[in-house]
Each structure stands twice: as C-alpha cells, then as structure tokens.
Amino acid sequence: MPKEKSVKKSRIHQDIQKQGIVFNKDFGQHILKNPLVITSMIDKSALRNTDVVLEIGPGTGNMTVKILEKVKKVVACEIDTRLVAELQKRVQGTPFQTKLQILVGDVLKAELPFFDVCVANVPYQISSPLIFKLLLHRPLFRCAVLMFQREFAQRLVAKPGDKLYCRLSINTQLLARVDMLMKVGKNNFKPPPKVESSVVRIEPRNPPPPVNFTEWDGLTRIAFLRKNKTLGAAFKQSSVLDMLEKNYKLHCSIRNIEITDPLNMQEKVTKILEDLNADQMRAKNMDIDDFMKILYAFNSADIHFS
C-alpha cells in the first residue's frame, strides 16, 4: 500500500511537469515535499474529526489530502488557478471530493469562513498581514500551525530585550500565545527557498484582551519606530504631536468636550509619560503591561492613536 501511494504521488508531480507548471516566485510558491514535516505539522495541530480546517496555499495538495483523512472539511485558499486544477484533479472521484472546498484568490482579500484550525505553509511575503487577518477574525479559531521564514518566526516569539523583539512580537503576543515548534531546512521544499524556515503554533487568547487593537497598534507604531529611543524622544516628533492633536480635537468635538485654550499637546503628552515614569522607557525593553498602562493613561486624557 505505501508503495502504491508513493507511485501515485510521483505521478502527480510528473503530470505537473508535463503540463509545464513552473512554481511562481511572485506567489512565494515553494511546495513542501517532505512527508515527515507534513505529518509533524498535522500532528502538532491536534486535529479532531469534527474540525473545519483552513489551509492557505495548498499547492499540489500534499498536506491537503493528509488533513482530509482526519477532519470533517478543508477550506483551501489558493491564488494560482493552475494549482487549483491540480488539487481538484487529485481528489476527484475520491471520498475527499465532498469534504474539500477551494477558495480561489488572494487570502488577504478573501472573506474567510468559520474554521477551527488553520494549517499553512505561508507564502513569506504575506506573513505579517496574514497573522493579523487571522487573529482579528471572528469567531476565534482554536489554533494555527504555520510555516514561516525562520527570522520572521523568531520575531514572533521574541521577548523584551531580545535583539529581534519588535512591534510584530508585541502585537502578536497581545492577541495570542506563540510557540516555536520546529526548524525546517530549505531542502524540504521544491524549489528550495533562499532562507531557512520554522513552524510556529499560534493560539488566540480567548477571550481576547480588553483593548482596542487599532489604538494599540497606533501606540506601538510610534514607540517602535526607533525602538532604542526613549518614549520621551519618540513623542516629541512634530508628526506624532500633530496626529495626536488632530485626534484629540476630533474626539472632543464628537463628545462635546470643551478644549482649554491654548492647547499644548507637547505639554499634555510629556506630563502623562512623566506621571507614569515612562518618559525614559524604551520600546525594546517594554512588555505588554507597560504598553497597556500607557495606552490607558493616554485614552483617559482623551488622547487617541486612531
């Protein structure tokens, strides 16, 4: 039986070569070919037979058919119509045909359906926007097991003080628990990418943190623009003060709050930071609680970041 499966798999790859399908670098197409890595990713997903699984970039379906064996339904999102045709051909006439739904198009623009688990070998150029699209999707999913470029994965799990700690780290960790699962060498792909990869597990915080993510994102954007600078210096930039003043005036006008004249935004901002002993803090060393306190203090003074 295993021999029959491997013959079938190689036949599928030969069919693709006969059709002249060249993997498209613009779509970040690097097909995961090592069955051990595929099996390990699926095992780490702890799939249940009642699950709906979202797979992004199924490629030729090597992982898709393995997932279909274990779950109720797979929704596969694929941008390349040539690979969609291959995937459809692969399940045609099998019990998997009715369990597979294919969304054709760009996953970043697609309206995602309900799903329990997401499994994906992610095209590297969409890594960051994809994570936040998934984490802001409702209802919340149980977990995602995703393959990323190694340095990107290291940024996801970086802690305050780490060299790779950045806005991506804190924004992701606000919304989810992130664990590094395994390293995957470039030779496990066809064609091999130029970089090494890693697999991470992302589990959304449920319930989500009581914070307006757009506001949070605005604050961390300012703080991490120069993560080695003090917050006092970051908030002295005229572009930052102009944005905060504009938002402040809009907020006050909507809520009929009288603005004391003359308005000195620099003074207001400095006082908030100094009262929190935060003016000498640097983003590179700050954790989620630090930013929560600062965001709460600014919002309490009617100063907003979005």
Score class of each variant (00 low, 15 high):
residue 155 R to Y: 01
residue 84 V to P: 03
residue 272 I to G: 01
residue 108 L to R: 07
residue 70 K to D: 12
residue 9 K to T: 04
residue 302 D to R: 09
residue 84 V to H: 07
residue 18 K to V: 13
residue 33 K to L: 12
residue 280 Q to V: 06
residue 221 R to G: 04
residue 287 D to C: 02
residue 197 S to D: 05
residue 201 R to I: 11
residue 267 E to Q: 08
residue 198 S to P: 00
residue 40 S to R: 12
residue 65 V to D: 04
residue 58 P to F: 01
residue 262 P to Y: 03
residue 258 E to C: 09
residue 202 I to G: 00
residue 136 L to V: 06
residue 192 P to V: 07
residue 9 K to V: 08
residue 186 K to R: 11
residue 45 S to W: 01
residue 296 Y to V: 09
residue 147 M to V: 12
residue 63 M to W: 02
residue 91 V to E: 00
residue 48 R to K: 04
residue 77 C to S: 10
residue 159 K to F: 09
residue 168 L to Q: 02
residue 107 V to Q: 00
residue 210 P to I: 09
residue 302 D to W: 09
residue 22 V to Q: 14
residue 102 I to S: 07
residue 213 F to T: 08
residue 36 L to F: 13
residue 125 Q to P: 14
residue 233 A to S: 13
residue 171 N to G: 10
residue 270 T to N: 13
residue 197 S to A: 11
residue 78 E to H: 05
residue 186 K to P: 01
residue 122 V to W: 04
residue 211 V to D: 07
residue 17 Q to R: 15
residue 131 I to C: 08
residue 192 P to Q: 13
residue 154 Q to D: 10
residue 242 D to M: 09
residue 139 P to G: 04
residue 5 K to V: 15
residue 20 G to W: 15
residue 83 L to A: 10
residue 229 K to N: 05
residue 71 V to S: 00
residue 77 C to F: 05
residue 166 C to R: 07
residue 21 I to A: 10
residue 81 T to D: 15
residue 2 P to T: 12
residue 160 P to H: 09
residue 146 L to N: 04
residue 200 V to C: 10
residue 246 K to T: 15
residue 159 K to Y: 09
residue 22 V to G: 12
residue 258 E to Q: 12
residue 296 Y to S: 12
residue 180 M to R: 14
residue 29 Q to W: 01
residue 6 S to D: 11
residue 16 I to L: 13
residue 289 D to C: 11
residue 9 K to E: 03
residue 241 L to A: 05
residue 122 V to F: 06
residue 17 Q to S: 14
residue 69 E to L: 07
residue 297 A to P: 00
residue 32 L to F: 11
